[in-house]
Design a protein around this nucleic acid. Structure first.
Ligand SMILES: [Zn+2]
Ligand SMILES: [Zn+2]
Ligand SMILES: [Zn+2]
Ligand SMILES: [Zn+2]
Lengths: 159, 159
DNA sequence: TCGTGAACGATACATTATATCATTTATAGC
DNA sequence: GCTATAAATGATATAATGTATCGTTCACGA
């Protein structure tokens, strides 16, 4: 996950706008600012990091309230995802494609560079975890996992 | 996970004290208060919930700082575990037994009653998740998963 | 008994999140 | 275009959570 070039970001924003319209919602200026901040960040951002990013790259300053409201909105639209383990946000990596989050989605977090990879659950993993849970009498409901590890790039840099 | 009777709690506290001594640490009065609060709670508690619990059940009021310090200490001693997804704490379910957390430990969280079950990772789950991560080039490091679901009791109550 | 470091108390402060209400903006119907 | 309506935002206050710092007390060993 590398910082997006501007023309890529624009294309994603157009796709995001289309997705909103399809849901009867609007991608306003403020929402676009927040989404853009997350798209351009190589790492997940906390609400206040989003706020700072927006305020650095714009003339008018955004109230903190708006960031919280807008992050909620964007999450409902599946344009961003919230990482519970760090309470930070990442932009969805499937905004431009037709991916609809039908599968469970998991996140791989690099401990070295803080990059995030959004991956679909495998059937193998679903079964193994269901199995592990049912051994304790639990019936798993939908959820996303946030798995820590080392990404390809950082493995190569270290080796 | 049900609220512990007092004599069970006392036995656990004795075991916890022994574990501390083995590590060259001490289970002081304040630490005992915090650990006891977590043991007696059927659900995970946030730092301030621990604080409230301690202050309800004791004459002298505990400063918030102490709770944070002590939770860190207890976590290092593996007497309590921190749940990253909710930023709350639970007492370890293996204080009395000889369980040493050699295996990865995962947590099953009931969405209905908020109870928590601490379970060992299965080899099957480890492999499935390693496999899923390596498909994206990630090498997983140690971690704990916090899986949402419905516990046995709540399944029966619903059915 | 005294020195030492760990644990704790106390205070201030920083960060993060929510509640509330006024104002502005977009939209649809006329 | 004009107006009613709801959505979105601005503005302010406040709550909740977490950290930094320093002085004091306490346990323990020399
Ligand atoms: Zn996504
Ligand atoms: Zn990396
Ligand atoms: Zn444990
Ligand atoms: Zn339950």
């Amino acid at each position: 996950m590398v910082q997006l070039k501007q023309f890529q970001c624009d294309a994603l924003l157009r796709a995001a706008e289309a997705a909103c319209v399809e849901n009867g919602a609007r991608l306003t200026h403020r929402r676009r600012q927040v989404l853009s901040a997350l798209m351009q960040s190589p790492n997940p951002l906390s609400a206040y990091e989003v706020l700072d990013s927006c305020n650095r790259s714009a003339a008018t300053s955004m109230p903190a309230m708006s960031v919280y409201r807008i992050l909620d909105f964007l999450e409902q639209q599946s344009l961003v995802h919230r990482l519970a383990s760090s309470n930070k946000y990442v932009s969805c990596s499937h905004i431009a494609c037709d991916h609809k989050h039908f599968q469970k989605t998991h996140f791989l977090l690099c401990e070295a560079c803080s990059s995030v990879e959004e991956v679909d659950a495998t059937e193998e993993a679903n079964q193994a975890l269901d199995h592990m849970a049912s051994a304790a009498g639990f019936k798993l409901t939908s959820q996303q996992f946030e798995l820590s590890g080392i990404c390809t790039t950082c493995q190569n840099n270290a080796g």
